[in-house]
Design a protein around this nucleic acid. Sequence first.
RNA 1: GCUUGGGUAGGGUAGCUUGGUUAUCCUAGGAGACUGUGGAUCUCUUGACUCGGGUUCAAAUCUCGGCCCAGGCCCCA
Length: 415
Amino acid sequence: MIQRPRGTRDFLPDEMEKRRHYEGILRDTAKTFGFREIATPIFEESELFILRSGPNVLKELYAFMDKGDREIALRPEMTAPAIRMFVNEMSNEPKPIKIFYFGQCFRYERPQSGRYREFFQFGAELIGNPNAESDAEIIAMAASMIKALGLHDYKIRIGHIGVLRKRIADAGVPKERTAEVLQKLDKKLYDEARPLLKEMDVSDADIDSIFTLTETVGDVSVLSQVEGEAGDYLRQLVDLLDAMGVRDVEIDLGVVRGLDYYTGMVFEAEAPSLGAEKQICGGGSYTLSELFGGEKVFSTGFAVGFDRILLAMEKEGQTYTPKGIDAYVLCVNDDVRRKASEIVSMLRANGVCADIDIMGRKMQKALKYASSVNAKYAVIVGPKELEEGCVTLRDMSSGDQRNVKIGELSSCFRC
RNA sequence: GCUUGGGUAGGGUAGCUUGGUUAUCCUAGGAGACUGUGGAUCUCUUGACUCGGGUUCAAAUCUCGGCCCAGGCCCCA
């Protein structure tokens, strides 16, 4: 027996139907916000991801050399491919460009709850403008998606990496060491951050002011304490979100989201029920296009961890009932099999989800099978009814039966 | 990369501590009993000790290693 590679999953029909259902909700929500779907390759040149995220991603990259000696990697995320595509093929489209995507990504990590080596992301990028309206669109869309999926227990936190970066730079931290400091701040490791900052000759007053900033956490009223441009910007953003009906957000200026290319607003959503891997969504505003050889263009984007959000919904007890098929056609005896094939084909041609017994089963077992595939109706084809041009239509849940003219059969399924 | 626990038919399990004949039960799949009516019963049938090494007369059971799963760290673009 050949087993699945570590960290991958098979999705059986019921599960897949459920996943498609919820994917559909995400797609529909994105469309209502005016976003359009794109797809990029599952593998790219490794360089693309290294440029975006730095060489340290290599150890978690599924990278290999192909038969033409190209350095290839399975995509670990989809923002870089989306922006590559924008630079290569869409840079002259009218702005803003609103695109979304859904697909699997790969990271060579240790699997644990809500973390797989092959996982699914839904993401969106709004390319074209570094203003609060763009950020509001993105956050509002993320919030709508979470709501549309029916998740209740979640938190959305909004921060601003620009203000934090500026404060750190003003305090005298050299540019190349910013990431180091941010990493400690992200984890709220102040005991480690303080000696680190002191080592860089940052004054105690500046250190305290940095810590105070990252500790600015709470509902939107804490923004009144934030001075300067970033404060104004966030107030404007929150006001727009309020106008859009998105009010269940928190401010947390300690949201850091590691990477260098984030320039302003950053946000995260988490589902506390998930434990260690509780982040279900993350994003922010950034510039990336210039890294891939394009002009510098401001974007805001986010990605949803599809597997995690489904897991969180499951933990809240949300269930999905598979739809099953409309009709299962079965024969009373072997003489009518040809006629039954005609009938099932007619139903299919009319858009009815119909199946037919191909195991040569007798009625009893065929009915049992029909119920096992959640058929709404059984279409029983027998010589008696055929004499009158009819078949028997059996409602599988109630057991009610009636004779229906073959010509009228398809219309019985429309509604 | 570190760490804890686990792995017995498709799914769920008993057996493992204390090694011993054909590996338990439920469910599921296939056929039949029932030749025109399902989710019932009965009969037959299919199907498993994660893999490899070691200890032993003998390993599902003890032991070591690999693989995989679940959880916790690290990381998380």
